[in-house]
Amino acid sequence: MFHLPKKPDSLRDTERHLITLTNPKSPIAEQYRTIRTNLQFTALGAELKTIVVTSASPGEGKSTTASNLAIVYAQLGKRVLLMDCDMRKPTIHLTFQLVGTQGLSTVLAKRSSLERAIQSTQVPKLHILSAGPIPPNPSELLASPMMRQVLNDVKGMYDLVILDAPPLMHVADSRLLASEADGTILVIGCDNSNRDLVLQAKEQLVLSGANVLGLVMNRRERTSTDSYYSYAHG
């Protein structure tokens, strides 16, 4: 049985989360462009076609980071696909004000084609593959041969694929995805992260064979709804 995600959130929430789109000249948006530049240097000439964005725990800003990174890469002229692989608590379709009736879960279950499930956005060159209806077996779907086929297909269609993955210390989904991707970014909410959990999360990534590109530190001011980000090589 699949459960439909919630209806899209408010426009105000969209504007808050997509700062690189709504206020591209802001210092926060500039930080995302800096992260993009640092990732390009970190790659050391290797082509990064698939990047997993995850965190140790919920609420650390991984989905916001994935969304804004996807936007700044698209603004650079790259063909970008943002995939919501958090099939337990999907949010990408809410952020971009899209429907969630088709998506990754229906593609993996062979209930819809990849082409029909991918949605365009207001950002030129940026497309979204939402999580789709919430399935009863996310880990099994993500570990399936069909998931590998989907990744191979989208790598041929886009310059960059960014995967928004679930928190590492709650389910095995992110480790499965990280082992298949070219690189992984770990997002840390500096005001609410548990240091031990972060270290365990990074260790789990290394043990899974992931290429840890670095850490994105989300410094959230308590008096503001805006988030400030910095990047550190892992």
Rank of each mutant, 00 (worst) to 15 (best):
I35L: 00
E60A: 12
M169P: 01
T54N: 02
Q31L: 06
P90L: 07
E140R: 01
H93E: 06
A165C: 08
P167K: 00
L141K: 02
L104I: 08
P90C: 03
G61S: 07
R79A: 12
D9P: 12
S112Y: 07
E180S: 12
S120D: 15
D164Q: 14
V72C: 06
E221M: 14
R36F: 05
L81G: 14
S179V: 10
K7A: 15
D173H: 01
K49P: 01
K78M: 15
Q122S: 11
S55P: 00
R79E: 14
Q31V: 09
E30H: 09
V72Q: 06
R195S: 12
V187P: 07
S193D: 06
L76D: 13
Y231V: 03
A131S: 15
V171Q: 11
A210L: 03
V80W: 02
I51L: 15
S144I: 14
I162H: 10
A109S: 09
I35C: 09
L205G: 02
R219P: 06
R88L: 04
L21F: 06
V216C: 12
S57M: 10
S179R: 15
V154S: 04
R195D: 00
T14S: 12
A201G: 01
R16I: 08
T14A: 07
E30T: 03
H127W: 07
P8I: 11
K202W: 09
T50D: 08
K78R: 15
E140P: 11
D191G: 02
M1A: 08
G183E: 09
V80R: 00
A70N: 03
S139E: 11
S130W: 07
R222A: 14
P133H: 10
I188A: 04
G183N: 08
A46D: 14
A165K: 01
M157F: 10
L104K: 05
M1W: 13
K155A: 05
V206F: 05
L186E: 08
L213H: 05
M83V: 15
G45L: 13
S227F: 01
N192C: 11
G156Y: 00
V53D: 06
V187A: 08
Q97L: 13
S67W: 10
Q75H: 07
R12K: 15
I71W: 00
Q119E: 04
G132Y: 00
L141A: 04
T106K: 14
V161A: 11
V206P: 11
L39T: 08
L104N: 03
M217V: 07
P90Q: 07
N192I: 08
Q204C: 04
T184A: 13
L21S: 06
L4W: 09
K25V: 08
V52F: 10
T54V: 10
L21D: 10
G189I: 06
E15T: 05
A109D: 05
G214Y: 02
P58D: 11
S57V: 01
R195P: 08
P5A: 11
L98T: 02
R220N: 04
Y229S: 04
V161P: 05
T64R: 07
T50N: 10
H93K: 02
L177R: 01
F96P: 02
L207V: 03
E60C: 12
T42G: 14
S227C: 12
V154A: 13
Y228R: 11
Y229W: 02
Y158L: 10
N152P: 12
K202Y: 09
S130N: 07
E47F: 05
A29G: 14
L104Q: 08
L215A: 10
I162L: 15
V161T: 13
T50A: 00
